[in-house]
C-alpha cells in the first residue's frame, strides 16, 4: 500500500454515465485486478475504484457514476489533485490460465480486465473477451480490447448492440481458463455456466480498503476473507454464494 497524490490529466465521458479518468503520479507496484482508494473532498470514506490501465507514472480509471461520490469524481477537472491509496487488493493471478484465457466483464466490471488483457498478452497468452452491458449507449472499450488484438464479443441485455442477452450467452467459445468481474448476479451466472476454473473479482462496500476494519468480509470455502485485502479476486473453487 502506498499513500500518494495523483494529478488529473483528463476526465471525460466515454459512454452513458461512464467516465474515463487519466491520472499522473506514482504507479509503482500496481497490478491488474487491484484497486485504488480515493479521498474525495467533502466525503469521509474513501471510494474504491478498480485500476483499468497503468503504466510508468500514468493511471487510467474507468468508473460509472452511481452515487454522490462518483458524481463528484466526474466533476473533477484537469489539474485536480487526488489523494489515493494504491496497491490495494490481491489482483489477478496470471500464473494459471493456460493458452487461451477468457475475460468476461459486465458494465463497471469491464475496466480491470483491460490491464489484465495487456498482462496476459505480454506473457504470451491469447486471451479473448466478452463484454456485457445493459444497452448500446453504455458500451465502452470494445475498440480498445480489439486494438490489443483480442477476439471481442459484446452482449447487450436489450439486444440494442451485439449479441442479444447476457455475457453467458456468448460463452460457448473455447477457453482454457477465465477471469471475470461484474455485478454479483452476472458472476453467479458465469460460475454456473463456466466449464473451467477461473477467478472472480468481487465488489463490496468498504470502510478502509486495506484490511483493518472488517467492513467487507465474505464467507469462502477457505474461511472468512476480506474483499479488500484477501480479495477482491477469489478463485472459483473457494466461492460460497
Amino acid at each position: 500500500m502506498i499513500d500518494t497524490v495523483f494529478t488529473v490529466l483528463s476526465n471525460s465521458p466515454i459512454a452513458q454515465n461512464t467516465f474515463e479518468m487519466v491520472l499522473s503520479g506514482d504507479t509503482e507496484g500496481i497490478r491488474p485486478g487491484q484497486f485504488v482508494n480515493l479521498k474525495l473532498p467533502g466525503y469521509y470514506l474513501r471510494r474504491p475504484i478498480s485500476v483499468c490501465d497503468h503504466g510508468p507514472g500514468s493511471l487510467t480509471l474507468v468508473y460509472k457514476v452511481v452515487g454522490h461520490g462518483t458524481e463528484l469524481m466526474a466533476s473533477l477537472e484537469k489539474g485536480a489533485a487526488l489523494d489515493a491509496l494504491t496497491g490495494l487488493g490481491n489482483g489477478y493471478d496470471t500464473s494459471l490460465p493456460g493458452e487461451k484465457p477468457l475475460l468476461i466483464g459486465g458494465g463497471a466490471g469491464v475496466p480491470p480486465l483491460y490491464a489484465l488483457a495487456k498482462k496476459l498478452l505480454a506473457e504470451g497468452k491469447r486471451p479473448a473477451a466478452i463484454l456485457g452491458f445493459n444497452t448500446k449507449s453504455e458500451v465502452f472499450y470494445e475498440d480498445k480490447f480489439r486494438a490489443l488484438g483480442l477476439e471481442t464479443f459484446v452482449a447487450t441485455a436489450d439486444g440494442s448492440y451485439g449479441i442479444r442477452g447476457f455475457v453467458t450467452d456468448a460463452m460457448d467459445v473455447e477457453y482454457t481458463y477465465f477471469y471475470t468481474c461484474g455485478p454479483e448476479p452476472m458472476l453467479k451466472a458465469v460460475y454456473e455456466k463456466s466449464r473451467t476454473s477461473g477467478q472472480f473479482s468481487f465488489e463490496e462496500r468498504m470502510g478502509c480498503g486495506f484490511g483493518a476494519c472488517m467492513g467487507c468480509t465474505c464467507k469462502t470455502k477457505t474461511g472468512y476473507k476480506r474483499v479488500c485485502k484477501d480479495g477482491p479476486v477469489l478463485t472459483k473453487e473457494e466461492i460460497v454464494w
Partner: peptide
C-alpha cells in the same frame, strides 16, 4: 452480513 459500512457527514457507520 454485508453491507456493514455506510458514509455519513464527517463520519461513517459500521
Amino acid at each position: 452480513e454485508p453491507p456493514r459500512i455506510a458514509e455519513a457527514p464527517s463520519g461513517m457507520l459500521n
